[in-house]
Protein backbone atom coordinates (compact mmCIF):
# COMPACT_ATOMS: atom_id res chain seq x y z
CA UNK A 1 0.00 0.00 0.00
CA UNK A 2 1.43 3.38 -0.86
CA UNK A 3 2.08 5.35 2.27
CA UNK A 4 0.75 8.78 1.47
CA UNK A 5 2.12 10.42 4.58
CA UNK A 6 5.70 9.63 3.58
CA UNK A 7 5.55 11.88 0.55
CA UNK A 8 5.04 15.60 0.83
CA UNK A 9 1.93 16.61 -1.09
CA UNK A 10 2.16 13.87 -3.69
CA UNK A 11 -0.20 15.69 -5.99
CA UNK A 12 1.53 19.04 -6.14
CA UNK A 13 1.44 20.06 -9.78
CA UNK A 14 4.83 20.95 -11.26
CA UNK A 15 4.23 24.68 -11.10
CA UNK A 16 4.12 24.40 -7.29
CA UNK A 17 0.46 25.18 -7.16
CA UNK A 18 -0.77 23.55 -3.94
CA UNK A 19 -3.14 20.66 -4.56
CA UNK A 20 -6.67 21.89 -4.28
CA UNK A 21 -5.83 25.37 -5.49
CA UNK A 22 -5.84 24.24 -9.10
CA UNK A 23 -9.07 24.87 -10.92
CA UNK A 24 -10.77 21.60 -11.80
CA UNK A 25 -13.32 21.97 -14.61
CA UNK A 26 -16.45 19.88 -15.11
CA UNK A 27 -16.28 17.10 -17.68
CA UNK A 28 -19.57 17.11 -19.57
CA UNK A 29 -20.72 14.44 -22.03
CA UNK A 30 -23.52 16.06 -24.00
CA UNK A 31 -25.90 13.99 -26.09
CA UNK A 32 -23.12 11.81 -27.49
CA UNK A 33 -23.94 9.18 -30.09
CA UNK A 34 -21.30 6.82 -31.48
CA UNK A 35 -22.28 4.47 -34.29
CA UNK A 36 -20.26 1.68 -35.88
CA UNK A 37 -22.04 0.71 -39.06
CA UNK A 38 -25.32 -0.68 -37.75
CA UNK A 39 -24.30 -0.83 -34.10
CA UNK A 40 -25.20 2.12 -31.89
CA UNK A 41 -22.49 1.87 -29.26
CA UNK A 42 -23.58 5.07 -27.51
CA UNK A 43 -27.08 6.44 -27.93
CA UNK A 44 -27.50 10.13 -27.04
CA UNK A 45 -25.75 9.80 -23.70
CA UNK A 46 -25.40 12.82 -21.42
CA UNK A 47 -23.87 13.04 -17.97
CA UNK A 48 -21.31 15.20 -16.23
CA UNK A 49 -18.47 14.58 -13.85
CA UNK A 50 -18.46 17.13 -11.03
CA UNK A 51 -15.05 18.63 -10.14
CA UNK A 52 -13.06 16.52 -7.66
CA UNK A 53 -15.66 13.74 -7.57
CA UNK A 54 -15.25 10.02 -8.10
CA UNK A 55 -17.74 9.20 -10.81
CA UNK A 56 -18.39 5.61 -11.82
CA UNK A 57 -19.55 4.48 -15.25
CA UNK A 58 -20.97 0.98 -15.10
CA UNK A 59 -22.93 -1.41 -17.26
CA UNK A 60 -22.77 -4.94 -18.66
CA UNK A 61 -20.16 -5.97 -21.19
CA UNK A 62 -20.61 -4.19 -24.50
CA UNK A 63 -22.67 -1.41 -22.91
CA UNK A 64 -20.45 1.24 -24.44
CA UNK A 65 -18.25 2.23 -21.51
CA UNK A 66 -14.91 2.00 -23.32
CA UNK A 67 -16.50 3.63 -26.34
CA UNK A 68 -17.45 6.52 -24.08
CA UNK A 69 -13.80 6.84 -22.97
CA UNK A 70 -12.73 6.75 -26.59
CA UNK A 71 -15.18 9.52 -27.42
CA UNK A 72 -13.88 11.63 -24.54
CA UNK A 73 -10.23 11.16 -25.51
CA UNK A 74 -10.86 11.72 -29.22
CA UNK A 75 -9.92 8.21 -30.35
CA UNK A 76 -13.46 7.90 -31.77
CA UNK A 77 -15.31 10.84 -33.30
CA UNK A 78 -18.92 10.86 -32.06
CA UNK A 79 -21.57 10.73 -34.79
CA UNK A 80 -23.29 13.55 -32.92
CA UNK A 81 -23.07 15.35 -29.61
CA UNK A 82 -20.00 16.77 -27.90
CA UNK A 83 -17.77 16.45 -24.86
CA UNK A 84 -16.54 19.50 -22.98
CA UNK A 85 -14.02 20.04 -20.21
CA UNK A 86 -14.68 23.46 -18.78
CA UNK A 87 -14.58 25.81 -21.74
CA UNK A 88 -12.69 23.39 -23.99
CA UNK A 89 -14.62 21.26 -26.45
CA UNK A 90 -12.76 17.95 -26.45
CA UNK A 91 -14.62 16.60 -29.46
CA UNK A 92 -13.33 19.52 -31.58
CA UNK A 93 -9.75 19.02 -30.40
CA UNK A 94 -7.20 16.95 -32.35
CA UNK A 95 -6.94 13.70 -30.35
CA UNK A 96 -3.27 14.15 -29.47
CA UNK A 97 -3.99 17.54 -27.91
CA UNK A 98 -6.62 16.25 -25.50
CA UNK A 99 -3.95 15.27 -22.96
CA UNK A 100 -2.69 18.84 -22.85
CA UNK A 101 -6.18 19.97 -21.82
CA UNK A 102 -5.89 17.86 -18.68
CA UNK A 103 -7.26 14.42 -19.54
CA UNK A 104 -5.30 11.38 -18.33
CA UNK A 105 -6.39 7.86 -19.19
CA UNK A 106 -5.43 4.37 -18.08
CA UNK A 107 -6.40 1.56 -20.42
CA UNK A 108 -8.58 -1.49 -19.97
CA UNK A 109 -5.97 -3.75 -21.53
CA UNK A 110 -2.42 -2.99 -20.55
CA UNK A 111 -1.08 -0.57 -23.11
CA UNK A 112 2.48 -0.23 -21.83
CA UNK A 113 5.73 -0.49 -23.78
CA UNK A 114 6.78 -3.80 -22.25
CA UNK A 115 10.47 -3.57 -23.13
CA UNK A 116 10.95 -0.06 -21.75
CA UNK A 117 11.62 0.78 -18.14
CA UNK A 118 8.83 1.81 -15.79
CA UNK A 119 10.30 5.33 -15.68
CA UNK A 120 10.37 5.50 -19.47
CA UNK A 121 6.72 4.44 -19.64
CA UNK A 122 5.63 6.98 -17.07
CA UNK A 123 7.71 9.69 -18.77
CA UNK A 124 5.54 9.22 -21.86
CA UNK A 125 2.81 10.87 -19.80
CA UNK A 126 4.98 14.00 -19.64
CA UNK A 127 5.02 14.19 -23.44
CA UNK A 128 2.68 17.17 -23.79
CA UNK A 129 4.29 18.95 -20.85
CA UNK A 130 7.76 18.80 -22.40
CA UNK A 131 9.26 19.91 -25.67
CA UNK A 132 12.32 19.11 -27.70
CA UNK A 133 12.74 17.00 -30.80
CA UNK A 134 15.34 14.68 -32.25
CA UNK A 135 18.16 17.20 -32.32
CA UNK A 136 17.66 18.86 -28.94
CA UNK A 137 17.77 15.44 -27.28
CA UNK A 138 20.43 14.13 -29.65
CA UNK A 139 22.73 17.06 -28.87
CA UNK A 140 21.77 16.97 -25.16
CA UNK A 141 20.99 20.70 -25.13
CA UNK A 142 21.44 21.80 -21.51
CA UNK A 143 17.97 23.33 -21.33
CA UNK A 144 16.39 20.13 -22.65
CA UNK A 145 18.38 17.93 -20.29
CA UNK A 146 17.55 20.06 -17.27
CA UNK A 147 13.85 19.88 -18.08
CA UNK A 148 14.17 16.14 -18.68
CA UNK A 149 15.69 15.63 -15.23
CA UNK A 150 13.03 17.75 -13.56
CA UNK A 151 10.27 15.78 -15.23
CA UNK A 152 11.97 12.48 -14.39
CA UNK A 153 11.97 13.47 -10.74
CA UNK A 154 8.29 14.24 -10.91
CA UNK A 155 7.62 10.93 -12.69
CA UNK A 156 9.59 9.09 -9.99
CA UNK A 157 7.56 10.90 -7.34
CA UNK A 158 4.33 9.74 -8.97
CA UNK A 159 5.67 6.18 -9.10
CA UNK A 160 6.50 6.36 -5.39
CA UNK A 161 3.00 7.56 -4.70
CA UNK A 162 1.62 4.53 -6.55
CA UNK A 163 3.94 2.13 -4.75
CA UNK A 164 6.05 1.20 -7.78
CA UNK A 165 9.02 3.43 -6.93
CA UNK A 166 11.27 0.42 -6.41
CA UNK A 167 10.81 -0.71 -10.01
CA UNK A 168 11.73 2.52 -11.84
CA UNK A 169 14.52 0.98 -13.90
CA UNK A 170 13.01 -2.43 -14.53
CA UNK A 171 11.31 -3.22 -17.84
CA UNK A 172 7.57 -2.71 -17.36
CA UNK A 173 6.83 -6.09 -18.93
CA UNK A 174 8.45 -8.08 -16.13
CA UNK A 175 6.29 -6.59 -13.34
CA UNK A 176 3.28 -8.38 -11.89
CA UNK A 177 -0.06 -7.68 -13.51
CA UNK A 178 -1.16 -5.51 -10.60
CA UNK A 179 2.02 -3.45 -10.73
CA UNK A 180 1.69 -3.00 -14.49
CA UNK A 181 -1.80 -1.62 -13.89
CA UNK A 182 -0.23 0.83 -11.48
CA UNK A 183 2.35 1.85 -14.07
CA UNK A 184 -0.51 2.54 -16.45
CA UNK A 185 -2.23 4.70 -13.82
CA UNK A 186 1.07 6.44 -13.01
CA UNK A 187 1.50 7.26 -16.69
CA UNK A 188 -2.02 8.74 -16.79
CA UNK A 189 -1.24 10.80 -13.68
CA UNK A 190 2.03 11.98 -15.21
CA UNK A 191 -0.13 13.99 -17.63
CA UNK A 192 -1.06 16.10 -14.55
CA UNK A 193 -4.72 15.64 -15.45
CA UNK A 194 -7.67 17.47 -14.01
CA UNK A 195 -9.78 14.45 -14.85
CA UNK A 196 -8.45 10.90 -14.68
CA UNK A 197 -10.17 8.16 -16.69
CA UNK A 198 -9.70 4.63 -15.37
CA UNK A 199 -11.01 1.78 -17.54
CA UNK A 200 -11.66 -1.33 -15.43
CA UNK A 201 -8.60 -0.94 -13.21
CA UNK A 202 -9.62 -3.94 -11.08
CA UNK A 203 -10.04 -6.34 -14.00
CA UNK A 204 -7.97 -9.45 -13.39
CA UNK A 205 -7.26 -8.59 -9.75
CA UNK A 206 -8.13 -10.72 -6.74
CA UNK A 207 -10.15 -9.50 -3.76
CA UNK A 208 -7.26 -8.14 -1.72
CA UNK A 209 -5.66 -6.44 -4.72
CA UNK A 210 -9.05 -4.89 -5.48
CA UNK A 211 -9.32 -3.58 -1.92
CA UNK A 212 -5.84 -2.05 -2.23
CA UNK A 213 -6.87 -0.48 -5.49
CA UNK A 214 -9.96 1.07 -3.88
CA UNK A 215 -7.66 2.67 -1.30
CA UNK A 216 -5.36 3.89 -4.01
CA UNK A 217 -8.17 5.48 -5.99
CA UNK A 218 -9.36 7.25 -2.89
CA UNK A 219 -5.80 8.39 -2.16
CA UNK A 220 -5.50 9.79 -5.66
CA UNK A 221 -8.79 11.57 -5.27
CA UNK A 222 -7.97 13.16 -1.92
CA UNK A 223 -4.22 13.59 -2.49
CA UNK A 224 -4.42 15.19 -5.92
CA UNK A 225 -8.02 16.40 -5.63
CA UNK A 226 -8.82 15.79 -9.27
CA UNK A 227 -11.93 14.30 -10.85
CA UNK A 228 -11.94 10.57 -11.50
CA UNK A 229 -14.17 8.85 -14.03
CA UNK A 230 -14.06 5.16 -13.33
CA UNK A 231 -15.32 2.28 -15.45
CA UNK A 232 -15.65 -0.77 -13.29
CA UNK A 233 -17.28 -4.15 -13.22
CA UNK A 234 -16.71 -4.78 -9.55
CA UNK A 235 -19.90 -3.50 -7.91
CA UNK A 236 -18.43 -3.60 -4.43
CA UNK A 237 -15.58 -1.35 -5.47
CA UNK A 238 -17.88 1.08 -7.26
CA UNK A 239 -20.48 1.36 -4.53
CA UNK A 240 -17.79 1.78 -1.89
CA UNK A 241 -15.92 4.71 -3.39
CA UNK A 242 -18.07 6.47 -6.01
CA UNK A 243 -19.81 9.76 -5.33
CA UNK A 244 -22.05 9.25 -8.31
CA UNK A 245 -22.85 6.40 -10.68
CA UNK A 246 -23.92 6.47 -14.31
CA UNK A 247 -25.32 3.23 -15.71
CA UNK A 248 -25.23 2.31 -19.40
CA UNK A 249 -27.05 -0.57 -21.06
CA UNK A 250 -26.81 -1.27 -24.79
CA UNK A 251 -25.43 2.21 -25.31
CA UNK A 252 -28.31 3.91 -23.51
CA UNK A 253 -28.13 5.72 -20.19
CA UNK A 254 -30.53 4.03 -17.80
CA UNK A 255 -29.57 5.64 -14.48
CA UNK A 256 -27.44 8.51 -13.16
CA UNK A 257 -27.50 9.08 -9.41
CA UNK A 258 -25.80 8.38 -6.09
CA UNK A 259 -24.72 4.77 -5.44
CA UNK A 260 -27.45 4.25 -2.86
CA UNK A 261 -30.20 5.26 -5.27
CA UNK A 262 -28.74 3.45 -8.27
CA UNK A 263 -28.39 0.27 -6.27
CA UNK A 264 -32.15 0.18 -5.72
CA UNK A 265 -33.14 1.17 -9.25
CA UNK A 266 -35.19 -1.69 -10.72
CA UNK A 267 -33.98 -1.00 -14.27
CA UNK A 268 -30.36 -1.21 -13.11
CA UNK A 269 -30.96 -4.38 -11.18
CA UNK A 270 -32.60 -5.91 -14.23
CA UNK A 271 -29.97 -4.80 -16.74
CA UNK A 272 -26.75 -4.79 -14.84
CA UNK A 273 -27.04 -6.97 -11.78
CA UNK A 274 -29.01 -9.49 -13.80
CA UNK A 275 -26.22 -9.84 -16.28
CA UNK A 276 -23.62 -10.12 -13.55
CA UNK A 277 -25.55 -13.07 -12.11
CA UNK A 278 -25.70 -14.63 -15.54
CA UNK A 279 -21.98 -14.16 -15.99
CA UNK A 280 -21.03 -15.70 -12.69
CA UNK A 281 -23.48 -18.57 -13.19
Amino acid sequence: MPDTTAHPTPGAPPADVPAGAREIPTLAVEDVTVRFGGIVALDAVSFSVAPRSIHALIGPNGAGKSTCFNAVTGIYRPTSGRVTLGDAVLTDTPPHQVARLGVGRAFQNLALVAGSSVLDNVMLGRYSLTSGGFLSYGLRLPRTMRAERRHEERAAEICDFLGIGAHLHRPAGVLSYGDQKRVDIARALAVEPTVLLLDEPAAGMNASETAELAHLIRDISTGLSISILLVEHDMGLVMGIADRVTVLDFGRLIADDTPAVVQKDPAVIRAYLGSVEEESA
Binding site: H96, R105, F107, L124, Y127
Partner: peptide, 9 residues
Protein backbone atom coordinates in the same frame (compact mmCIF):
# COMPACT_ATOMS: atom_id res chain seq x y z
CA UNK B 1 -4.29 4.68 -29.31
CA UNK B 2 -2.27 4.89 -26.10
CA UNK B 3 0.34 7.06 -27.82
CA UNK B 4 -2.37 9.46 -28.98
CA UNK B 5 -3.99 9.69 -25.57
CA UNK B 6 -0.58 10.54 -24.08
CA UNK B 7 -0.29 13.47 -26.50
CA UNK B 8 1.73 11.98 -29.34
CA UNK B 9 0.70 12.85 -32.88
Amino acid sequence: AAATVMGVS
